[in-house]
């Protein structure tokens, strides 16, 4: 078994920028508080890990504004995400809040946190291969996505599109399990 490419501690620039933005925030406790809000379709991941949680802000009157962005154009989970964030803010005692959706910049899997990539694998979903590993087109490879169950790289693509818009379907030739692959986009 070869060592996994995702073990190499390289992070995308996009991720580094997100992290820096969060670290420079005036309201770190709000970011921490929303870490408990998970993606409704992949509950292993928080909205922060997924990159859907873009920004948040508290104004001088105490009103909280949260910005989220959809993964895919047709992401059916976006309104659930909005509700979940609102519930969490209400639970924490905020009265005045708003969750806004924004489209630009467009969501990319480069925003996944390293922690999120690890959690995806543990959940049984292969994280996106990064362009650094030679997948120049950025599209789903036909072979070789590492199996999240047995770590074999002897795998094949069954379908370009999987159970949700963000996934493709693979099968491992070693352990024969089928698994989802989180598409790079």
């Amino acid at each position: 078994m070869t060592s996994s490419i995702s073990d190499i501690p390289v992070v995308s620039n996009a991720w580094a920028e997100r992290l820096q933005h969060r670290q420079q925030s005036q309201v770190p406790e709000l970011w921490d508080m929303l870490d408990v809000v998970n993606d409704p379709e992949v509950p292993a991941l928080s909205l922060w890990d997924l990159g859907v949680l873009c920004d948040l802000h508290k104004d001088e009157y105490g009103k909280v504004t949260v910005w989220i962005t959809p993964t895919y154009s047709g992401c059916p989970a976006i309104s659930t995400m909005q509700d979940d964030i609102e519930s969490e803010l209400a639970r924490a005692g905020f009265n005045d809040y708003e969750v806004k959706t924004k489209l630009a910049p467009a969501w990319t899997t480069d925003w996944l946190s390293p922690e999120g990539r690890r959690k995806l694998r543990e959940y049984g979903i292969a994280p996106p291969t990064q362009s650094a590993c030679g997948n120049a087109s950025g599209l789903t490879p036909e072979f070789g996505v590492e199996c999240p169950h047995c770590s074999s790289s002897d795998t094949k693509r069954l379908s370009e599109f999987g159970s949700t818009a963000c996934k493709a379907l693979f099968q491992c030739n070693d352990c024969h399990e089928a698994f989802d692959y989180f598409k790079q986009i």
């Binding site: 959809p70 895919y72 154009s73 047709g74 992401c75 059916p76 379908s159 370009e160 599109f161 999987g162 159970s163 949700t164 818009a165 379907l169």
Partner: peptide
Amino acid sequence: DLALQNVALDFLGR
């Protein structure tokens, strides 16, 4: 079947 619905969903989102 799944692939077609994924594509349909992308267009619905647009």
